[in-house]
Amino acid sequence: MKRYSYFIISLLVIILFSACEEDEGGTAPTVSGALSIEFDNYVGTQPMQLDPEGSTDYRYTTGAGQEFNLSTFRYYISNIKLEGPDGASFEDEMNASANADEVQGYYLVQEGDPDSYFIDLDEVPVGQYNKMTFTLGIAEEGVQEGAAGGILDPAEGAWFWTWNSGYISLGMEGTAADSPQERVERDGLVTEANTFQLHVGGWKELEGNDNMVNNIRTITLDFGDVVTVGQDVKPKVHLVFDMLKILDGAAIDFSQTFQVHAPRAAVPMADEIPGAFTVDHVHQ
């Protein structure tokens, strides 16, 4: 297998180099293909499934033995970059525009909306790739462009903190047997008993503000294999995001931690985000 790959790579290198020689003197147009990334959310070994808000049907158990379920699970992905062993590279174009149709490079993965699990990258230069980097959350450049549309529009479902302006990177909500949350009703809005709302946000790292908490995390993943993007071949990278690694890694005890709505309390969870992603497999 290895020897076969080596042969293919050599062949490709020869072809690429020959192509370069032919294009000498002119600007070679970049030939583009596509690559698809699937985000597959898990809770430990169980594929993630949502329950209605307030449900006491507990599907999952933390490492510490606390039962819980999930009613909402969502996160933003941005700044996707691909790299290859031979120097191929791709950076997703970013645009936080007021015009929803022009928003680019920002993605909302929302459990329960299967369309949101797939990010299709077009315009990836043809070549070989074995590594990807992305950001979980919306970093400074996305916030500081000002009001944006589409998945970044708070009136259309973006999760945005108004008093400490910025997007919630990762939202986890559900019910936990140990959560002491009482049922609250205000103007028709109900927070059910025993629920939890864990919101990871905070992006600021501004000059002269050393005390700010930045919970934006960058994730770098090796494919463990090499995929080829060609004009007619669209490889798929299948990622698994295990949310239990966040709860267990941050030692979340629902009897103590059931409402998180500010950056500092979310730091332990943010720190577990990079380790919660793995490349399950790649399809050529």
């Binding site: 000002g146 708070p154 945005f160 302006s165 501004l206």
Partner: peptide, 12 residues
């Protein structure tokens, strides 16, 4: 100083 861009001021 919680809001870092003028666009987001009215939302608050």
């Amino acid at each position: 100083g919680g809001v870092t861009h003028l666009d987001f001021v009215p939302t608050n």
